[in-house]
Design a protein around this nucleic acid. Structure first.
Length: 434
RNA sequence: GGAGAGGUGGCUGAGCGGUUGAAAGCACCAGUCUUGAAAACUGGCGAGGGUGUGAGCCCUCCGAGAGUUCGAAUCUCUCCCUCUCCGCCA
């Protein structure tokens, strides 16, 4: 959530060198949202303030009279006149209070759907075509034979089974078997070990089901309800990413300043309805309703959250590099960025089976957008509590990494060479063969 | 699932219809003392909102929501959570 007071005050933002309101309007436009929403929010807020002032003045009057009553009663005098007046005031206040509730909830509903303001470095653009390539690692692998994609490779090796998953569950689910299941487990372990041991993240094992409040906290609700699986007749949701249970770990808390930054890593299944992507990426493991992801998450001090964001992105890149996978880092433009992010890098891995780069990690700095929603703060020395900055990114999506390994490490005979770094996690196995 | 106990400020914990935003302690901050630190002493110390250039003033908040009342942390109802015991189960 953004801060309505910041729009009102319209202070100049460092980096942008323009007023908050103007910057936010242009961000809205560049994200493809209705700019008029800003004015509507300001309008609601103005109305809200007016009613608040009335309600509070009434309440103040009541409080004073209440003291009078105490005095009269103690003195043993008659208070019936003042009591009648109180009744009137009380009724009046309650009525206005109802009105206030209505306006507040309208304002809040609107604010909940407004995207974050963009960081000044984020490129302006309408779609992914305006994303900016920041870095390329490695090269396209060359093959002197006709390559297969991961579906053919996996099914031929008997480690991947979509048909049975279709029977047992439905479309967009899969079974991994034997060495395939082992490979998935090895990848997860490898990533978790790297981040805990080399990058100093604390591993955290989370609930895979969260309540609606938590989903609001990180911004999945109310706007993207259809993207998540809800447990019927409850306000529980299957987590679409570990970002939700990890970020909400400190919801409604005030951290000590010296505790920042906090680093967490969680390897969890993720569940997504993929409601908006019918017919898209229907082949293989690429877009499933369920997949494992190792998620990196930081609670950072506002003063250095962009350094932490950069470091986190590098931590994710390290996984791809250790696996010897060709990838590039893209800086997302305003139009392609998630609505809570102020700045976002996508890591895209080369998939020979698709002959293109595909997203395997998304590393975002939300600044105080999620922290304001979830109410996560820290106390600066001797100062008022302030919102922390939250940063997260995949390090990496395990399902897609598995695709990348299968396709990039395939041999002519359809076997898969196991990348060196994974072998310790697979009992020394050098290749997956029939 | 059954029976009981409970949820109060950063933490511990009193209060159980009317000057209670809330005793006390810890933690924290400032000062005195000290070469410095500790200890001791003194003072300060919750959050959100409204208003004002400002000091300030006002409103709200004692798990959440609804109710009773002129007035609720205190009474009633619903829900959530925690703990203890029983049952069931991985």
């Amino acid at each position: 959530m953004i801060d309505i007071k910041k729009i009102e005050k319209n202070e100049v933002i460092p980096g942008w060198e323009k007023g908050y309101k103007e910057v936010y309007r242009s961000c809205l436009a560049n994200r493809g949202e209705d700019v008029a929403l800003v004015d509507r929010a300001l309008e609601y807020n103005q109305k809200r303030k007016e009613i608040v002032q009335f309600v509070e003045a009434t309440k103040s009057e009541q409080n004073k009279m209440s003291q009078e009553i105490v005095k009269l009663k103690k003195a043993g005098e008659d208070a019936s006149g003042i009591l009648k007046e109180m009744q009137k005031l009380s009724a009046q206040g309650k009525e206005k209070g109802k009105e206030l509730e209505g306006v507040e909830s309208e304002l809040n509903n609107l604010m909940q759907t407004l995207p974050n303001i963009c960081h000044f470095e984020t490129p302006m653009g309408a779609s992914e075509a305006q994303n900016v390539e920041k870095k390329v690692f490695g090269e396209k692998p060359s093959f002197d034979f006709k390559i297969k994609d991961h579906v053919d490779l996996g099914e031929n090796l008997g480690i991947l089974d979509f048909e049975t998953a279709g029977k047992v569950t439905g479309a967009r689910f899969s079974y991994l078997k034997g060495k395939g299941a082992l490979l998935e487990r090895a990848l997860t372990q490898f990533m978790l070990n790297m981040h805990t041991i080399d990058h100093a993240y604390e591993e955290i094992s989370t609930p895979f089901i969260v309540n609606a409040t938590s989903m609001y906290g990180t911004g999945q609700l109310p706007k993207f309800k259809d993207d998540a699986f809800q447990v019927s007749d409850t306000d529980f949701f299957l987590i679409p990413t570990a970002e939700v249970p990890v970020t909400n770990y400190y919801a409604k808390e005030i951290l000590a300043e010296e505790d920042l930054p906090k680093y967490f890593v969680a390897g969890t299944p993720c569940f997504r309805s993929e409601a908006g992507s019918y017919g898209k990426d229907t082949r293989g493991l690429f877009r499933q309703h369920q997949f494992i992801k190792v998620e990196l998450m930081k609670f950072a001090h506002p003063d250095n959250s962009y350094e932490e964001h950069e470091k986190l992105t590098q931590n994710a890149e390290k996984v791809l590099e250790a696996l010897g996978l060709h990838y590039r880092r893209m800086e997302l433009c305003t139009g392609d960025m998630g609505y809570g992010a102020a700045k976002c890098f996508d890591l895209e891995v080369w998939l020979p089976g698709q002959d293109q780069f595909r997203e395997i990690s998304s590393c975002s700095n939300f600044e105080d957008f999620q922290a304001r929603r979830a109410n996560i703060r820290f106390r600066p020395k001797g100062g008022k509590p302030q919102f922390v900055h939250t940063i997260n990114g995949s390090g990496l999506a395990v399902g897609r990494t598995l695709i990348a390994v299968l396709e990039n490490y395939q041999n002519k005979d359809g076997s898969i060479e196991v990348p060196e770094v994974l072998r310790p996690y697979m009992a020394g196995l050098k290749s997956i063969t029939l």
